[in-house]
Write a protein that binds this DNA or RNA. Structure first.
Length: 617
DNA sequence: TTAGGGTTAG
């Protein structure tokens, strides 16, 4: 045990910190007073000092050892100096760490990687990168310890250009076969959304360890088809790599994106069978997975089973009820959270406000919005205003929504104006839509979705010239809408459809089913709304295009492939259009099937010709 | 003596 006495050593710092490296760091004095340890043996065995440093629990102990090894000359020993440097970085005392580092007469690869890593782990990417540049300029070879830190900086800053430069350094030094370096590169490319490069690197790895697999599974879930992520997980297990809880949380996340209930159950079984403890991160991911797979009750069961809940857990449960339109239950969870002593954060309020909006709880939403700062010291940002625009807009209070937007000095983004325009579409308010659309097109001139939304508003009002102008603008700017995709899980298999898709083996039967449904639905009162078709073609062709919307293909397949009495669950990557919403309502009436639609993380339960969200989708 | 992957919204 180290004992502090009331004596002091003077520890010289080695050199003055250079700008701009520490422009924001606290000033470091040339000497630091440190309590002395008179009983320190005068041994010159480096192992002794390394062990003492390992036992050092705080910065005072570390400074004390620093004083001792300076006094007896042991600081000249690289092992001792590096360990001391490492301990300073572990304590996040980077000013003193860098002072020691820059004063070291001899530095080896360990010294450099500890210093670069120290900065990066503390989130000081500027100095981390500056130190790495210093290493390169000094002609030192970067190694497999230093490079992952530098690649991590490129990943977090999403700086693909720099990432590629570092990749070049990796190749130059023949380090691409190192698992740490390669997994970091895969992760960097994936986070920069260059998924093909990530996959190529992964496929070329000679021996893939658990972390490499986890990174690639997460990358697939994020950038490609989440189904592919689950296939990759199966391959990993087949190859004898056993997952840990981090890998499981990644897989659970992939299931959440996919929204496939059967897969969720399989993953849950796997987690139980392999006795993974329901820690706060895995548990929270599972709440989110069940909620996004349409089973809010299972999400709640997981929530109730968790012993430790953090603000993310509570927020996930609030969001879960919000997705399903259970606003009151979301509010109950919020109140339970407060009683348990957990403070809400900005995301908690986004979840809560959306829950109010999706359930039509206008008064409650307004109350929570105004309490954010007053009662919980959470400042409203543009996303909270977006929730409020959604809340007021859905209720038809468009003027109030616009007034609220205009009352804030916050910079408005495309999400905010998009929510406003969406509300204008629901209520057919062309004048207000025109008023805000320029702000939206200025912010995101490349997003075809905005042009389509405005075209639909014009079409609904019969303003064909304006609609045609929008379409011409899209052509001029060479814009194409992101394809809408709908998928459905049947017998543990995902079936995906795009508009006009004829690639499914049951294609003929699916189109015949839609034709037969259309005939029956029209008798029941359904009127196809061709305003949701943008193309300049005659009405009959428009009807054909409308009939091949991906949602309808998935519903028809669901009716053909599942037994009566089973709910049909479909997921769409974009919002369901107004015509499909109406189509599904009528299908639920004439077939007496429950249909659950997930679009943009909101669930719509269709039953007996009604939808849980009313007509505000 | 130094290293990696996981949770909520949009």
């Amino acid at each position: 045990m180290l004992k502090l006495k009331n004596q002091t050593f003077l520890v010289p710092n080695h050199g003055i910190l250079r700008l701009p490296l520490f422009s924001t760091a606290a000033a470091v004095t040339n000497t630091t007073a440190v309590p002395a340890q008179p009983h320190f043996p005068r041994t010159l065995d480096p192992k002794f000092y390394v062990n003492v440093l390992l036992c050092s629990r705080n910065i005072f102990h570390i400074r004390q050892v620093h004083a001792q090894v300076t006094a007896n000359g042991m600081l000249q020993n690289l092992t001792v100096a590096n360990k001391l440097l490492y301990m300073y970085t572990q304590q996040r005392v980077l000013g003193e760490a860098y002072a020691l580092f820059s004063g070291m007469e001899e530095k080896d690869a360990v010294s450099w990687s500890v210093m670069v890593g120290g900065f990066v782990k503390a989130g000081d990417y500027t100095n981390g990168f500056a130190t790495f540049r210093e290493l390169i300029r000094g002609g030192v070879s970067p190694d497999n310890y230093t490079l992952p830190f530098v690649i991590r900086v490129c990943r977090d800053l999403m700086d693909l250009q720099m990432g590629k430069l570092v990749h070049g350094i990796v190749l130059k030094h023949g380090l691409v076969s190192d698992n740490f370096v390669c997994a970091a590169l895969v992760d960097m490319y994936a986070k920069c959304r260059v998924i093909d490069d990530a996959r190529q690197l992964f496929d070329n790895m000679q021996s893939r360890d658990l972390v490499s697999w986890t990174v690639m599974i997460g990358a697939c879930a994020e950038c490609r088809n989440a189904d592919e992520a689950l296939v990759l997980f199966d391959r990993m297990v087949d190859e004898g790599v056993l997952p840990d809880k981090v890998a499981m949380a990644t897989v659970v996340n992939a299931c959440a994106k996919l929204g496939a209930m059967h897969k969720a159950r399989l993953v849950d079984d796997y987690i139980c069978r392999n006795k993974f403890s329901l820690d706060v991160i895995l548990g929270t991911a599972m709440i989110d997975m069940y909620a996004k797979c349409g089973c809010v009750d299972s999400a709640r069961e997981i929530f109730d089973r968790m012993h430790v809940k953090n603000v993310i857990t509570w927020s996930a449960m609030i969001a879960a009820y919000g997705y399903h339109g259970h606003g009151r239950k979301a509010i109950d969870i919020f109140e339970m959270m407060l009683s348990s002593g957990v403070s809400p954060n900005a995301i908690t309020f986004i979840s809560l406000l959306y829950a109010c909006s999706h359930s039509g709880l206008i008064e409650e939403g307004l109350r929570f919005f105004s309490s954010m700062w007053d009662e919980y010291a959470v400042r409203a940002d543009v996303k909270h205003y977006t929730c409020m625009v959604d809340l007021l807009g859905r209720a038809g209070k468009l003027d109030e929504a616009l007034k609220l937007v205009e009352s804030t000095a916050l910079e408005k983004d495309e999400g905010l104006w998009g929510a406003f325009l969406g509300a204008c579409r629901i209520h057919g308010n062309v004048d207000l839509a025109k008023k805000v659309v320029n702000s939206l097109l200025e912010l995101q001139p490349e997003n075809a979705g905005h042009y389509v939304l405005l075209s639909n508003i014009y079409a609904r009002e019969g303003r064909w010239k304006d609609m045609s102008k929008m379409r011409d603008l899209m052509t001029q700017r060479k814009l194409k809408k992101i394809p809408g995709l709908t998928w459905i899980e049947v017998d543990n298999k995902i079936h995906q459809f795009s508009v006009g898709d004829r690639s499914h083996p049951w294609s003929e039967k699916i189109y015949a089913m839609i034709k037969s449904l259309n005939e029956k639905l029209e008798l029941a009162g359904y009127v196809p709304d061709t305003n949701f078709v943008l193309h300049d073609v005659d009405e009959e062709v428009k009807l054909g295009m409308l009939s091949s919307h991906s949602e309808k293909l998935a519903i028809a397949f669901g009716l053909l492939a599942t037994a009566d009495g089973t709910p049909i669950r479909i997921t769409k990557n974009l919002r369901v259009c107004g015509d499909c919403h109406s189509f599904i309502k009528f299908v639920s009436a004439i077939t007496q099937r429950v249909i659950i639609v997930r679009d943009a993380n909101r669930f719509h339960h269709f039953k007996e010709g009604a939808c849980s969200c009313g007509d505000y989708w």
